[in-house]
Amino acid sequence: MIELKNVSKTFTLHNQGSAIIEVTNDVSLKVSAGECVALTGASGAGKSTLMRMIYGNYLSQAGEIRIGDVDLVRAEPREVIALRREILGYVSQFLRVVPRVPTLEVVAEPLRAIGIGAEEAEERAQSLLAQLNIPQRLWSLSPTTFSGGEQQRVNIARGFAHSYPAMLLDEPTASLDATNREVVLSLIEAAKARGAAIIGIFHDEAARARVCDREIDVSRFTPKAAA
């Protein structure tokens, strides 16, 4: 489902003496449907960068990133957008929304975007928010005013609203209490069970051990003594 072949990424800082920073070099990996793979490595090893490359958020300089039939390195913006709408989900650590939009709509939006009716989308959103213990009185408010933990759970609800065949999870259980952590892990297990290919970053070792089938240490892709 997700396949990387010889992918490399550099940052060129034009405004800082054109410094070139090599971040990852020659990454190859493969994640099949129903599999969950953890990216590991020390802080700064490039886990998040690699995730962002797989999401198309960062531009890769060489190689191939295949999600289904699409090569993200060469895809047109509209192909990437269609891919993100239908196939590839991403749960980041930070919530980014239009101010003033109610939480319920924020969570339902990925479903509305693939053409699901307002009522059905909201039902799904309600059940996820309830599952993640967001009090119902907050559903009609914009999440921009919520606490960090609440925002993260809204973000997770949004990320799991649509059953994406491929998912990227960046620290989905960080800063959650035991109850909510359990809910998120069960959501991941359910996604695996329906055949989603998942790549995740988990600092929480117990969580990693529970949901992940394999680990990939990204430090082996870090260019040696380059910078």
């Binding site: 940052f11 060129t12 800082l13 034009h14 405004n15 962002r52 198309g56 958020n57 960062y58 531009l59 913006p77 990437v80 957008i81």
Partner: peptide, 21 residues
């Protein structure tokens, strides 16, 4: 030119980098 979040988060051209920063 490119995907909005890609250009904003990983700008390639010197001017785009200046604009974003």
């Amino acid at each position: 030119a490119g995907l909005t979040d890609q250009v904003l988060d990983d700008p390639q051209h010197a001017y785009s980098q200046l604009l974003v920063s």
